[in-house]
Design a protein around this nucleic acid. Structure first.
Lengths: 209, 209
DNA sequence: GTATCTCTCCCTCTTTTGGGGGAGGAAATT
DNA sequence: AATTTCCTCCCCCAAAAGAGGGAGAGATAC
């Protein structure tokens, strides 16, 4: 049996979800509220929730903040976002806050149900477009993307920095002088509008369309 | 119509895949080989491949290296790994090399087919366990994980460094002296066995079980 | 030709980082 | 009472990084 919490401010949607999952064998909809604070209050100490289906745009505290609250109370409880936001910003915020799934609101109820079951079995339900954005995070920035801005040599330097090499190590790898490496780096910083290698390593300059 | 390439060394599996997709309406299995070199040779200039289903453990060049070759010839061609390896190491290597999907070999043919269609439609097919590992990458290291090693204060310092703050900025944020920040950082480095903030930012110290 | 771009290298300068040491106070544990 | 842990701060110093400047060689484009 999956004990489910629902955090969704739209009364109609919340009711639809609650009724749907209440009818599903194997599911028990234990808590269902429209904002984070009431949700946490309604979450009785005795009730153990396995997972929570949460909206992001909520009155008061956002669903992202809700994740952290939920995780603090019950680290083992999994949180799946169910939202209209499909921008990388929100997706990564949610995942970084501890969400284990991210579904778009257009997802049909049956698919949501399948997602939650997959979650219980060790999966991480994501809508296709969301999964693509998450995977794209790891994919190398396509050559086209940087070739517009960086020269081939600069791209090599960037690569080395991203690997955590120092300027000296980079100079040795490319067999050029330390000064040249520094010159390239200065140019890279200008082009990418950053001013430290930390920004490069953490990828803050990356466009995430 | 999806033009598909198959890169799989086990002749039996390769034949099963090739025959299956050849029979599927909407699919054309254009290239099917058992190693990277023959694959690239057999990939005729005139043939445009939309996606490639590739094993990782191949004789000669690995499937990971194959991704890069494929991407160089045709950046728009998507690569989906189909492999027995479910360890984070291989998964992240594949994604970082440019793979847009990662399926385990136990995946039934119908699911593979659904995955490829989802890929065409902007998704990123992943087996449930794989998706979970990818999402876990973003999830915060569970408190238990670091609390064993780092003191609360050290965790705050680490947090600041991960955000790209300098020591001075960190000192201001936590309202302590620059020297104290440096002391904490020295201790963190010792505990996590690294010796530069780059390693912290790129997360090289993280255990990925 | 001239201009532009790229890659190379050099200079000076300040700031930041990392490594080594020590040390005091507070709190909890033994 | 003694020990340990944690947080705080200080000293030293060497290395690295970042910002500013300039400059020459080669290729390409106009």
């Amino acid at each position: 049996m999956i004990y489910l919490g629902i955090l969704e401010d739209d009364a109609e949607i919340r009711q639809t979800l609650t009724e749907y999952f209440s009818r599903q064998p194997g599911f028990t909809c234990a808590v269902s509220k429209g904002d984070v604070v009431s949700f946490m209050e309604a979450w009785d100490e005795q009730v153990k929730l396995d997972m929570v289906l949460s909206d992001i745009g909520l009155p008061g505290e956002s669903g992202i903040q809700g994740i952290q609250r939920i995780k603090r109370r019950s680290p083992r409880c999994q949180v799946v976002m169910l939202t209209v936001y499909d921008d990388p910003e929100k997706i990564f915020q949610a995942l970084c806050a501890g969400a284990t799934g991210y579904l778009l609101k257009q997802t049909p109820l049956q698919k949501i149900r399948e997602g939650l079951i997959s979650l219980r079995d060790g999966g991480a339900p994501m809508s296709p477009g969301v999964a693509r954005k998450v995977v794209a995070y790891f994919n190398p920035r396509s050559a086209e993307d940087l070739e517009e801005k960086l020269t081939p040599r600069e791209a090599q330097i960037l690569q080395a920095i991203e690997e955590g090499l120092t300027n000296k190590e980079t100079a040795i790898r490319l067999d050029i002088s330390l000064e040249t490496v520094k010159t390239h780096i200065k140019n890279i910083y200008q082009k990418l509008e950053v001013n430290s290698r930390h920004a490069l390593i953490s990828g803050k300059y990356k466009k995430q369309p």
